[in-house]
């Protein structure tokens, strides 16, 4: 029953409220300027890479390495900070005649899309004026889209963490850092260790399952599959390609990424709807 309610579309009145909230968030975020600063960092980074870093594919790879490391961290911190900083404001909004579902989507879309746009625009402009976008449109679009998607996923995770540890900020930030360290840095090492330890057994399915459980890995593999760089592919990437082939590998991975966005967002909504403020 409640699940149906969560999936059910918003009616026109609620849609109007939703866009009203989103617009308001955009306005205040743009005034806050640091989202623009974040976009500028990617602009300068991409431009510098393009000036000194050689060809288009190499630059896109370097960009995606930076992106895979930092977007998850920034996204999560940003999401959880928003929840913590806006407590009283969210409470005030909840006392208005508006339902929690509309408010949740309004806040989530309102704060995640500017961050996403900052990355996409910031990285796209130099790619455009250096001609990479025209020269290698498929790969460029994929890197930009992955960065955008990771932003949404990790802002959603930040929201979930903020709502789950509403009273205990230290714990909330602690988990944020641990999850980031685990997903962005330790995960590959752990998989490798498992492979070395259990090398005598067929591990393909395990490796594939393990990859699916980490959105950063999924994004990494999609980049590597797109560029077809076997040397950099690593074990997980190689297994992935062998198992799915390049195209359906990319398709499966993007499907999983969508799921990775849908599930945290849905959990966040559920927590938000049940929460005592």
């Amino acid at each position: 029953m409640e699940e149906d309610e969560n999936i059910k579309k918003l009616n026109p009145v609620e849609m109007k409220l939703l866009t009203h909230i989103i617009k308001n968030e955009w306005k205040t975020l743009i005034r806050g300027k640091w989202v623009i600063g974040y976009g500028l960092i990617f602009l300068i980074l991409t431009d510098t890479l393009l000036r000194f870093g050689g060809g288009g594919a190499e630059v896109l790879l370097s960009l995606s390495n930076v992106m895979l490391l930092f977007i998850p961290l920034v996204g999560m911190i940003y999401g959880i900070l928003y929840i913590y900083q806006s407590r009283e404001f969210v409470e005030l909004l909840l006392t208005q005649p508006i339902n929690r579902k509309t408010l949740f989507w309004g806040l989530f879309c309102g704060i995640s899309t500017p961050l996403m746009a900052a990355f996409v625009v910031g990285a796209m402009l130099p790619l455009g004026w250096h001609g990479i976008l025209a020269q290698d449109p498929g790969a460029s679009v994929m890197v930009l889209a992955l960065g955008g998607m990771l932003t949404l996923i990790f802002v959603a995770l930040g929201f979930v963490l903020g709502l789950a540890f509403y009273e205990d900020r230290i714990k909330g930030f602690g988990f944020t850092i641990v999850i980031w360290l685990f997903m962005a840095i330790l995960y590959d090492g752990l998989i490798l260790m498992a492979i070395f330890t259990f090398g005598d057994y067929p591990l393909e399915r395990f490796v594939i399952a393990a990859t699916m459980l980490n959105p950063i890995d999924l994004a990494r593999i999609m980049v590597l599959l797109e560029f077809d760089i076997s040397a950099l592919m690593g074990y997980t990437g190689a297994v992935f390609r062998q198992f799915f082939g390049t195209n359906s590998g990319i398709l499966t991975a993007s499907g999983m990424l969508v799921l990775w966005l849908a599930v945290p967002a849905w959990i966040g909504l559920r927590v938000f709807k049940k929460k005592d403020f």
């Binding site: 407590r87 009283e88 404001f89 409470e91 005030l92 006392t95 208005q96 005649p97 508006i98 339902n99 929690r100 709807k273």
Partner: peptide, 18 residues
């Protein structure tokens, strides 16, 4: 869990932070 009834309510919270 309904919300329309809040049209008739004005609330001034203890802590005003925006």
């Amino acid at each position: 869990g309904n919300w329309l009834y809040r049209q008739d309510i004005g609330y001034m919270p203890q802590v005003a932070r925006y």
